[in-house]
């Protein structure tokens, strides 16, 4: 299990050493937060739904985690390009451990990014309930693990840097927009609702929102079950894909 630790530590070191770049990556979610939060806030309130900042903040945290997690796959492609992937692939370490270390490392980075966004939303007036904050953290971590594993799975099959961001946009954008991160799920058309119900991130967003604002659309245990199951499945797929990777 030492291999898991050293893989994890490596990701954190790389994160810390490129913290300027990582802070830059927070620009997009914060823009969403400020523009939508303050732009749509008044209408949201007029419609009788309450404080939009309060509703939106957990969604933006989930967004940050989703994007950061998926982009962990980029690290695999970097490693392939710079040859370092070979070093890990020939090592006498079960692929499961390599995958676990990479996933935990990437997920930790994504959660830290999510927490930074959380801290900033507090400055902008987000007022969470703290009682279940550890539950929220658990949800954040599960989302991060699930989508990091997804990013690694995709990257294991890709050779070049150019196609990864394009594929990511195709997958990540719909997952984000159809997750209930930006709008409430009551009174939306049944077909849209069906799409949203099909999206695993919906349950993650709802779980974070439920535990931080004590209001949610879905039962928290269902949220937990879905995101936990999704995480396990993606982790297994990732391990399989990674074990087939060539360098």
């Amino acid at each position: 299990m030492k291999a898991v630790y050293i893989m994890w530590l490596r990701q954190l070191k790389r994160y810390w050493r490129s913290r300027g770049r990582m802070l830059g990556a927070l620009g997009q979610p914060l823009l969403f937060f400020v523009a939508l939060g303050f732009g749509l806030g008044p209408i949201y309130e007029k419609a009788g739904e309450g404080n939009y900042i309060q509703f939106l903040a957990p969604g933006i945290m989930a967004m940050t985690i989703l994007f950061t997690s998926m982009f962990n796959g980029m690290e695999v492609i970097w490693d392939r390009q710079f040859g370092f992937l070979k070093e890990t692939l020939v090592a006498p370490v079960p692929r499961f451990h390599i995958m676990l270390g990479r996933t935990l490392g990437g997920a930790t980075v994504a959660v830290v990014q999510g927490l930074i966004v959380f801290a900033i939303t507090l400055i902008f007036g987000f007022n969470p309930s703290w009682i279940y904050s550890l539950v929220a953290l658990l949800f954040m971590f599960m989302i991060a693990c699930a989508f990091t594993a997804a990013g690694i799975s995709i990257a294991s099959k890709l050779e070049d840097m150019q196609s990864f961001p394009i594929i990511m946009n195709f997958i990540v954008a719909p997952i984000f927009f159809l997750s209930g991160a930006l709008f409430p799920l009551d009174n939306i058309s049944p077909s849209l609702r069906a799409l949203i119900n099909f999206n695993p991130l919906t349950y993650g967003v709802d779980g974070i929102r439920g535990s931080l604002t004590l209001s949610s659309h879905i039962n928290i245990f269902l949220d937990f079950g879905v995101i936990f199951g999704f995480m396990l499945i993606l982790f297994l797929i990732g391990t399989y894909m990674f074990s087939k990777a060539e360098a």
Binding site: K2, I6, R10, F82, F84, K86, E87, V90, P92, V93
Partner: peptide, 29 residues
């Protein structure tokens, strides 16, 4: 994989780590 070690023809180091960290990483793996 337990039976061999290899020095590759083309680079396979992690540029974002120090020389020591690269060796340490290998030793632990």
């Amino acid at each position: 994989r337990k039976s061999f070690g290899i020095v590759f023809q083309d680079p396979s180091l992690d540029n974002e780590l120090t020389a020591f960290e690269n060796l340490e990483f290998h030793g632990i793996l």
